[in-house]
Design a protein around this nucleic acid. Structure first.
Length: 480
RNA sequence: UGGGGCGUCGCCAAGCGGUAAGGCGCGGGUCUUUGGAACCCGUAUUCGAAGGUUCGAAUCCUUCCGCCCCAGCCA
């Protein structure tokens, strides 16, 4: 089959991430395996920016015969909620992707804990008892190295004991943290003994109060990737600085099949708020009706607004994937939905500013039904019956009493075609005392039923509407 | 100021030493069975800047300039 509907997706050049995946496949790096994951934190709804990541992760798995997990990065009980995990699952599925497995970082809490113990045993992590302010002060600045915590050289046995007691609930929030022992003088802050675990006496949406210590993203993410045998861990640019830590952890705890983190530039849309924090604010303050308010760029908002999954996927395929910061013009998104809807949306005829038309030679009281095409772009969309009678309305803009030369619409003495109905000719203009046009008197040509002229007469068809078949509708105005 | 990234048309984006793809947008035109549709044409002598290497550079080297990210016990 000729791909006359070839999309940007099929024509799109291979982006740098797919190039890496293909290279790894070619060299047999992961024994021909490709495994990705989409790792949202259930602390809000997904938006169009997430769609880019979803299409990337699921797309690569799909195209290269791999798998893609949906993994909730739920390591911060304070911000997360089941409402969000349900919404996220709905949105991903609606976009047209099915995950190989539904997983949660919280499912790994026990194993992550054991990884932490292993790290302590290796002498690569320690329990720090400095408070938050002190830790910040010890961290140094952009130009000055940090200082070692006085607790940095606690013996392994003491660290093991303290860490176990942290888990046991002996300490208050903030009393201790587990930190990696790397390098307080590193120019990369992420390596200045990053925090791995903190004490949080808070109920978790899945584990309840089974835990009072929770792993940090930097600790949980690479190890969760490794546990799932993810091959390519794709994330956004701001995590580039975290990669050395990602590799450090994986290097210390994982023997084979280590995952690799690859960063790409997140999506930005002009005139669009894409920050989860700000979207949450709009929802909480009641500025919008909810996460699916059609004015929001959330997946559920776009869905409610009439966007189709196809159009969003097409958009993601068109914008590409690279490392350059970008601000996509919303016109690009709108183009995708227009193209999709144009191809499949059924049409209706409507009149915004009605002008009454009386067909003087059409039998009084007669009503006939004409077949109107549902979608000129798609013959299979069929036709519908629309009543036609002596009195009907056309768009005011479709009539001009004194038309310029290239005006193909109705004017006195001129003939025009009513879409899928008849040709009509304007014979008289009825006005009120002030010269306002009240109605038009026209004649119709019975031989042109269906809007076809037996003698090949042409004319741009105009929309029309039978009298008394109106319904009040609100018409969205174009926002320009 | 230290570190990590990035700079190709208004917005995206290919290009990987052999003489600037494509999409969106925009401009013009064609089309008398909707069109904010479709189709056609046009839209970077130039790749942040300056030097250098080379027969040849957006692609290699040097310096400079600009923008983004990092000092959460957030992700």
């Amino acid at each position: 089959m000729a791909d006359q509907h070839s999309t940007a997706a099929t024509a799109a050049p291979v982006d740098f991430i797919r190039a890496i995946v293909d290279e790894d496949l070619a060299t047999g790096k992961h024994h021909g395996r490709v495994s990705t994951r989409f790792p949202p934190e259930p602390n809000g709804y997904l938006h169009i920016g997430h769609a880019k990541s979803i299409c990337l992760n699921f797309g690569i798995a799909q195209e290269r015969g791999g798998s893609c997990n949906l993994r909730f990065d739920d390591t911060n009980p304070a911000k997360e909620d089941v409402e969000y995990v349900d919404a996220i699952k709905d949105d991903v599925a609606w976009l047209g992707f099915m995950w190989s497995a539904e997983l949660y970082a919280s499912d790994y809490f026990e194993r992550l804990y054991r990884f932490a113990v292993e790290l302590i045993t290796q002498g690569k992590a320690y329990v720090d008892s400095l408070n938050g302010d002190q830790i910040r002060a010890y961290r140094g600045t952009l130009t000055e190295a940090g200082k070692n915590s006085p607790y940095r050289d606690r013996p392994v046995s003491e660290n093991l004991d303290l860490f176990a007691r942290m888990r046991g609930g002996e300490f208050a929030d903030g009393a201790h943290v587990l930190r990696a022992k790397i390098d307080m003088a590193s120019p990369n802050f992420n390596l200045r003994d990053p925090t791995l675990y903190r004490i949080r006496h808070a109920a978790h949406h899945r584990t309840g109060d089974a835990w009072c210590i929770y792993p940090m993203y930097d600790f949980a993410h690479p190890l969760s990737d490794a546990l799932e045998r993810i091959t390519h861990s794709i994330c956004t640019l701001e995590f580039e600085d975290h990669r050395p830590l990602y590799d450090w952890l994986v290097g210390a705890l994982i023997d084979e099949d280590r995952p690799r983190q690859i960063e790409f530039a997140r999506l930005n849309l002009n005139y669009t708020v894409m920050s989860k924090r700000k979207l949450l604010q709009l929802v909480q303050q009641g500025v919008v009706s909810g996460w699916n308010d059609p004015r929001l760029p959330t997946i559920s908002g776009l869905r409610r607004r009439g966007y189709t999954p196809e159009s969003i996927r097409d958009f993601c395929a068109r914008i590409g994937v690279a490392k350059k910061e970008n601000v996509i013009d919303v016109a690009q998104l709108e183009h995708s939905i227009r193209e999709d809807l144009n191809r499949r949306a059924p049409r209706v005829m409507t009149v915004l500013r009605p002008l009454k038309v009386v067909l003087t030679n059409y039998p009084e009281g007669q009503v006939e039904e004409v077949d109107v095409i549902n979608n000129p772009e798609d013959a299979s969309a069929g036709t519908r019956k629309v009543p036609f009678s002596r009195v009907l309305y056309i768009e005011r803009d479709d009539f001009l009493e004194d038309p310029p030369k290239k005006f193909f619409r109705l004017s006195p003495g001129k003939e025009v075609r009513l879409r899928c109905a008849y040709f009509i000719t304007c014979t008289e203009v009825v006005k009120d005392g002030r010269g306002e046009i009240l109605e038009l008197r026209c004649t119709y040509d019975p031989s042109t039923r269906g809007g076809d002229s037996p003698d090949g007469r042409k004319g741009t068809p105009r929309g029309w509407r039978k009298a008394k078949r109106s319904s009040i509708t609100s018409i969205p105005t174009r926002s320009t």
